[in-house]
């Protein structure tokens, strides 16, 4: 069921990204982490990530701006927004800006893994 996907976690909560990164790796995923948008963009530019999990609040810039820039440059790269602060407004803006999904912390790994896999699968299929 699990594909060995390359996952990039962009989140400034280093404890969260590191724990999650390790746990994803244990499930056969390759995970890289970035603490800022700029750092994340640099990794995306290498073409390595297949799915991005992006925190809405980042130290260097607004996560939504970061999302918009990622989707502008790499429109087919699926991005899942993950945030500790639920906001309907941000959620809907996120989807409008091209996010594949919008999830809330705390999220159990099982759910996150499914969301990553589904976002990746959807990004492979053609668009109508």
């Amino acid at each position: 069921m699990t594909q060995p996907l390359n996952i990039l976690l962009i989140d400034d909560e280093i404890d969260f990204v590191e724990t999650t990164g390790k746990r994803l790796a244990r499930r056969g995923y390759s995970a890289k982490t970035a603490l800022t948008c700029a750092e994340g963009m640099a990794i995306i530019a290498t073409g390595w990530p297949e799915v991005v999990v992006l925190d809405v609040m980042l130290p260097d810039r607004d996560g939504m701006d970061c999302l918009r820039e990622i989707k502008e440059k790499w429109p087919t790269l699926p991005v899942i927004l993950l945030t500790g602060h639920a906001s309907m407004e941000t959620g809907l803006h996120g989807l409008e800006s091209g996010a594949s999904d919008y999830c809330l912390k705390p999220i159990d790994l099982e759910t996150l893994v499914e969301k990553i896999a589904i976002a990746h699968r959807e990004s492979r299929a053609p668009r109508s």
């Binding site: 639920a86 906001s87 309907m88 959620g91 809907l92 989807l95 999904d101 919008y102 999830c103 809330l104 668009r127 109508s128």
Partner: peptide, 26 residues
């Protein structure tokens, strides 16, 4: 947090439904 989180998750999913229906229906 429960109320806000569930309302947000719900509206996100319904947004997706509308989005996909619109594409589905050309």
């Amino acid at each position: 947090a429960f109320v806000r989180g569930n309302c947000t998750a719900l509206s996100v999913n319904i947004y997706k439904m509308i989005h996909h229906l619109t594409r589905l229906a050309d």
